[in-house]
Design a protein around this nucleic acid. Sequence first.
DNA 1: TTTTGAGTTGTTCGA
DNA 2: GTCGAACAACTCAAA
Length: 457
Amino acid sequence: MTGTSAPVTETHPSVLWFRRDLRLRDHAALMAAAERGPVTALFVLDDELLSRSGAPRTAFLLRTLRSLAADLEHHGGGLVVRRGRPEEVVPALAREIGASGVHISADYAPYGARRDARVSEALGDVPLVPTGSPYAVAPGRILKGDGTPYKVYTPFHRAWSEHGWRRPADSDPSQTQWLVVGGDDIPDDPDVDAQLPPAGEAAALDAWELFRDNGLRRYPKQRNRPDIDETSRMSPHLKLGTIHPRTILADLGPAHEAYRRQICWRDFYAQVLHHWPSSAHDYLKPAFKHMQYDTGEVAQQRFSAWQRGETGYPIVDAGMRQLLAQGWMHNRVRMVVASFLVKDLHLEWTQGAQHFMDHLIDGDLANNQHGWQWTAGTGTDAAPYFRVFNPVAQGEKFDPDGDYVRRWVPQLRDIPGAAAHSPWAQPQPPADYPPPIVDHAAERRESLERLKAIGAT
DNA sequence: TTTTGAGTTGTTCGA
DNA sequence: GTCGAACAACTCAAA
């Protein structure tokens, strides 16, 4: 015994405030909290956040919370759930247990960052301690040589790959001393028609291992095939943090670059939103604000048809119906339906983005808003203006046998093969399926005209 | 400061 | 049926 390290004779309880990190493994903030003494696990039901969350996403969150609570109980603890404003609830609990600190994983999204600043102030002398983030590399860590953030993906990806990331954190819930106090009940799920996937950390790890050992090998070739549907389905888990991207990256080898790039996209868009918070609702390229968009009753009817999956374009309708049925949509199809809303219906991307956020269980502000801005051609590193998806060609290319559209649009069941992508060309089109609400070729030309008009300004 | 090369995911048209 | 070019101009990143 040399006495170089001070013996820890005194321990202080602390609060571990869960937000988008609803797991116990690979959890840096949990480690930081646990090494100081007993830990009270808290989740705040924040009405301001819940009011922005559609029923499927809320249901998936509540199921995830129940799973986390059960996991904590399994390790001799429990999840303290309290409803209210975080700047009131968190300091109240901290006082109640005499916390020496409140530990969090940092949140870089606009609302979360403002909320955390308010909470930190309300906590007074009790520090709000961020450890780790929901990303492989936290926003703000990767900058260009001149100290400013990247706006283009490819150089960001290069820098991100060179920067590297930490190994998964070694958090151990069974070695943590949990301190449980009273709280509110987790509310019942809202009514949801959608078939949601299993929620919680164990489900996330199961889903990851299943994909890693099966679909990952074929991912580069098949990721664009909604009919085969061998994507990883990790997005809802990454959204809620039931798995950390580092856990995933640690399993990837040199052959898995295509999938690793997707993880990098998530980091990229998080840092774009972090550095340009207004891009959550504003056109990143301001000229697009002045483009002519359709409004009025016909536009609203078309928007409604798009939402319900009754546009008469099978790949669009299949995607929109999958969204309603599963709270999820294949990524290739997300681009197709987004392009249709923006370029064929001439509606603003924000309208479509809102519908996505209402229904997607993986609805993540950074990914969603910037995915839409990319399609609309208004975002960072966006698609060139002339890139207009043809819904028939996309269907024939990525759903070559028509299996995807027949799965989600049963009215097409009697049209075999790729012909299902153009039912109007059938000798006898199905009577219970609508004809196209707009003519794609004409609307494509119209879109290019309107884009040209703002190019002149 | 200036210059240069490059930029996730597409479609259409004409040879 | 296949193939290459055109579809613009601009901004970004880096030397």
